[in-house]
Every structure is written in structure tokens, then in C-alpha cells.
Amino acid sequence: MADKSLGALLSDLLQLLADLIDETDDAMDREKLLALQRRAAKPLQTLIDEIVKKRIEEYKAATASLTEANAALKAAKTDIDQVAVAITKAAKAISAVAKLAGTLA
């Protein structure tokens, strides 16, 4: 199993402290646990702020690539739609030639 990241370890610690506060009846002990919780959460918040900033950029980059793929799919669909149009155009061309032939006859 891979080692947990610092962020994951801090998160686990905060959850353990909160659960311990739930279980502790002594008010003084709870005060100490709460103070510890407030202090330990600070570096985690700093870490999360950095990760969020980085991840948001990653989301933006991946979304831009996906948007390009979606545009390519739409273009391919339009291209395929042109097949029937091409056949109809050929029909019109033949019709025009037939009219011309009729005029010349």
C-alpha cells in the first residue's frame, strides 16, 4: 500500500481528534483536544489552498482539451451530414443537364 500524503495524514488526525472530542466527557481534556484541532487544521488549510489552486488549473487544461474533442465530434457529424447533401447536389446537376439537353433537342 502506498504511503499516505501529508495532507491525508493531517486529515486523518483531525478526524481522530474530532471523534475523540465526541467521546471525552472531561471538559478540560476536550478544551485541549479542541485547541490541538484548531492548531493542526491550520497547516492542512495552507496545503489544501495550494492543491486547490493547482487542481483548478489542471481542470481548466483538461476541459479545454475535451472541448476541442467535442468540436471535432461536431465537425465530423457535419461532415457526415454532407453525404446526403452531395447526392442531392449530384441529382440537381443531372437535372440541370437534362433541362439543357431538352433545350438543345
Partner: peptide, 11 residues
């Protein structure tokens, strides 16, 4: 996992 917004929600 502790990552980005999911981690913020948990905290």
C-alpha cells in the same frame, strides 16, 4: 484521499 475541494469539504 485528501485532495483539493473534496479535502476542503472534509476539513
Amino acid at each position: 484521499q485528501a485532495d483539493a475541494l473534496g479535502s476542503q469539504f472534509q476539513k
